[in-house]
Structures are given as structure tokens and as C-alpha cells.
Design a protein around this nucleic acid. Sequence first.
DNA 1: AAGGAAACCAACCGCTCTTAG
DNA 2: GCTAAGAGCGGTTGGTTTCCT
Length: 252
Amino acid sequence: MGRSPCCEKAHTNKGAWTKEEDDRLIAYIRAHGEGCWRSLPKAAGLLRCGKSCRLRWINYLRPDLKRGNFTEEEDELIIMLHGLLGNKWSLIAGRLPGRTDNEIKNYWNTHIRRKLLNRGIDPATHRPLNDAARDVTTISFSGAKEEKEQRNNPSGFVNKDDEKKIPVQETCPDLNLDLRISPPYHQSQAPEPLKTRGRTLCLVCSLGVKNGKGCACSIGGTAGSSSSNSNSGYDFSGLKTGFLDYRSLEMK
DNA sequence: AAGGAAACCAACCGCTCTTAG
DNA sequence: GCTAAGAGCGGTTGGTTTCCT
């Protein structure tokens, strides 16, 4: 069967974008809006693949992008969300205004991974490195873990990055994120699904993800709307309620 | 000052998911 | 319901910059 390529590769530029290409893309999107990436390059007079245009716009040219270093708060939020969602960079990016999935992914791979490793935490599982073989998978951001780390490293100074001598700080000290992946689900022992004013709330909505693409809850249509998080803070998939129905972690 | 190593990050590739016909 | 096109996502690559010896 096969499928036609997304663009005429023989007639497209590759590699770094030039200022002129950027300008053309920006001007075109300002005039016509995003969308229809396949036909955009031709319409905009660009010798680029549509995918390439989309990526350039999303990751670099969008006016709402926040450039510059990640803050400590963003670091901790990324770590927390990665613990919940895994490598769902786009979902994580959805919780960090002005940041792109690509940016977060790069940042994770270059900074946070190392940071966690130096803290003695496996970046993939968010569990202590020496605690690899347990039956119950626990993702923990609780004080207990910090305590353990503290014991291993009483100084609170952790890694090479820590040559800057920044003490490790718990951003959300009262946030208990102990998550357990338990044996197969049985109706009788299932916890109540997350509910908002009596309505079931899926993880996507509870995270306030804007496009609500993975939303499967009864109020999906309002995912990401201001109403979903207007009452001062979302319940990160039940974090405030103290549990996580891990079945809802299946995003797609 | 020079060369190599490490870090960083933009961009590409290939796959999956969604949607329209 | 099936198929193909379009869009989006995550993993990976490769060029550039910075750091170290």
C-alpha cells in the first residue's frame, strides 16, 4: 500500500532555518492562521516540508513562547508531571505555559535526568536507584523520600550542577504524591473516580490540558477552559484527594 | 592557544492517531 | 467499516557552543 511522502523531498530545504524563511512563515501564519501544514509551504513560498514548518512555528516562532532558563518551580513541576505521565512531553508542556514539548524533552534529557540521577533517583521510574526490585511500583514525591535522600546526603547539596551550591528545596512540601500501581482492577475495590461537583473527571481534564485531546470524561468539552481550573488550582489527578486512579493514566 | 570532550538544542524521522471521504 | 491523508508525538541525530586539560 504505502503512503505518499508528506512532501516532495527533492525540492525541500533541510537543516537550520534562515531569517528569511522564518519571516515568510510568520507572515503567512499571521495572515492565514495555523493549520493545513501540508499546503502551507507552497502557499507561503517556502521550500520546506509541512512538518518542518509546523515544528519551526510551534517550537520557535510562536509569539507566546517563553524563552530562557527554566525556573526551579518549573523543574519541580516537570519532575512531578513526568512521574505521573511519563514521556508524554506534549501533556507536560500543556501544564507549562510558554514551553514546548521539544524544549521540555531536551531539558529533561540534558538537565533533569542528571539531576535526578545525582539525587539517587531513577529518572525513568522516579524510584530510588537502589530500590529497583519491588513488587509495588511507587512514585513518590513525599517527604519520606526526601528524608531518605537527606540521610544519604545530609548536606542537601547534590550534584555537579550543585557546584552552584543550591540547597535542594521541596517546592510543594505538603504534597504527598505516593502512587501505587496495584493488581488488576476489581470493581469492588475500585476507588471512586475523580469527581467535580458530581461529574467524573479524567486525568486530562484534571490536569487542565487545554486541547483536551485525550479527554474521556463527561465534561470533556470544557477541558482546559477557564472554568476547569478557576477554583484555585486543579487537583492533579486526585493529588489533593489523596489517590490516583492509575487506569485513567491511559491517555490514548 | 589548541584540541578534545561534554553539553546543548534545533531539526529530522518514523510511527501512531484522527478524520474525512 | 475501510482507506488514505493530515496532524501530532516521541525518539534520535547532528551541528554548534562551551568547558576542560
